[in-house]
Design a protein around this nucleic acid. Structure first.
Lengths: 274, 274
DNA sequence: CAGTGGTCTAGACCACCAA
DNA sequence: TGGTGGTCTAGACCACTGC
């Protein structure tokens, strides 16, 4: 059964937008009593929240189909159109994927046409060959002030720190440092980081149930230090693109800090502005 | 009157999706005859094209309100819901802006809350003070092979080339080279580039009727040459963020090539991945 | 063929805004 | 108060998928 589904006894009054979820009190009264809804929340937004809740709780897992629109409509006691609008927004946010004639599916980093959804580095010419991954360092330690701030942890909380190099066509191109909250990634090993084929974010979904839905990046041009230059096999002074990323799971919860150094002599970072 | 509006005699057959625009022939026959529509185009997509056409032809100018949904529905002889879906998509693409209770407006780079829609460079701390603009060079010349390719011109076509420096708090932070097709920017002067207060793209709208709707960027970390370093007042070897942008107007027509060099010691380039 | 998402309509009422 | 966009419903039919 669906969590948050109103009891079947709750009648649905057409043209009374807030009825199924705000019953039995009047909408305004209920909102005021809860002190949560500030003014007015459209029905489809409430449906959207319920669907999000199911995703977050893992009721519907990445790659699986969620119930059909009709099914959800009858569960939530709203019209199909209202469910449709909720799903439309979730699909626009890349949390769900609609497939005509088949159903609506939970988005995943795994079986996606675009293999690396969050990687914007493109080869200047030709198409990318698969990357070779090399884990240079793997350790478990305390977060420290800076990492703790980025991941909303205490500075004494444990994190995994991973350093790795990605090579394309035998050329080391990306040097990455990752920080992951140890509590959410219990049992992570250097072997798992190195062995898994495909997007690392897909492994996070499969092995740890952590699904990244959004990421913020800050880009800078920097000069590498001696160690970094060595790992990327570039001259000490040569400019590299620094990409600091915080990736979030549901509810805007930060779950990964990643600092990348990209070689941009053969590749470039692609972005589209709307 | 609206360009492309079907004659009033064209009756609208409910549940015959393609009727108003594909009349009088049967939809499939018409599509085949024109050899344009490959398979099937939903009504709302056709409505969207008609609205786009009006925007492109300047029938509705940036900042102005377009006709109400009801008005458009009766002009196009479709239901309000169909017009709504067309407008929804155009609003999602930032071509239109809906304002409840007021109407739907043509988006503009001018009176937007976000002053510089296409500028992703943010100060590391605090809020940005207004930029000081300094035009270093302005000339009219032939495009040349490289610029011609980016702007879909012939290499002998004339372009304006502008070099300018943007300073924040007295610190030169951005060095930009711009290339603009002379045919679309007839009468552009160095004074206009220097004097206009606010976003340059807003000036393009007001003075030349050229509205940028999208841009593609390629980012790289580079070392500046001596001239560039001098203009930005940085050391010769210091890494800078290179941003090559092609900005497009309606119909994916490229109208500007811009090469920026950003200082990223006090600023960073912000990006969000979904 | 049945089931899914996709399109289209018609009509009702709500929230917001300006006059 | 009237007009605008915003929400919600109910029902019809279409396009796509897989059995």
């Amino acid at each position: 059964m669906i969590f948050g589904c109103p009891p079947p006894a709750a009648a649905c009054n057409p043209h009374m937008p807030a009825s199924p979820l705000n019953e039995p009190e009047a909408p305004a009264a209920r909102a005021a009593a809860e002190g949560v809804t500030p003014a007015f929340s459209p029905l489809y937004q409430q449906i959207k929240s319920l669907i999000l809740q199911n995703l977050q709780e893992g009721q519907w897992r990445p790659g699986e189909a969620i119930p059909s629109e009709m099914e959800l409509a009858s569960r939530f006691r709203v019209s199909q159109g209202t469910v449709r609008k909720a799903i439309d927004e979730l699909a626009a946010e890349n949390l769900l994927v609609r497939r005509q004639g088949k159903g609506t599916f939970v988005a995943t980093h795994a079986e996606q046409h675009v293999r690396y959804r969050f990687l914007r580095l493109m080869p200047d010419a030709g198409t990318e060959s698969p990357a070779r991954r090399q884990v240079v360092d793997f350790r478990r330690q305390r977060a420290g002030a800076e990492v703790a701030r980025a991941l909303a942890l205490r500075s004494t909380d444990a994190v995994f720190q991973v350093r790795r190099v990605l090579s394309f066509d035998g050329t080391p191109t990306i040097l990455e440092d990752l920080w992951l909250p140890a509590s959410a990634f219990k049992g992570l090993t250097a072997e798992a980081m190195a062995d898994y084929q495909g997007a690392t974010y897909a492994m996070f979904e499969l092995d740890f149930g952590v699904r990244m839905v959004r990421a913020d990046e800050k880009l800078r041009a920097v000069a590498p230090d001696a160690v970094q230059a060595g790992l990327l096999q570039v001259a000490a002074g040569s400019p590299l693109l620094s990409v600091e990323r915080v990736a979030y799971t549901y509810n805007d919860t930060p779950m990964e800090l990643r600092r990348g150094l990209y070689r941009t002599d053969t590749h470039h970072y692609r972005n589209t502005l709307n």
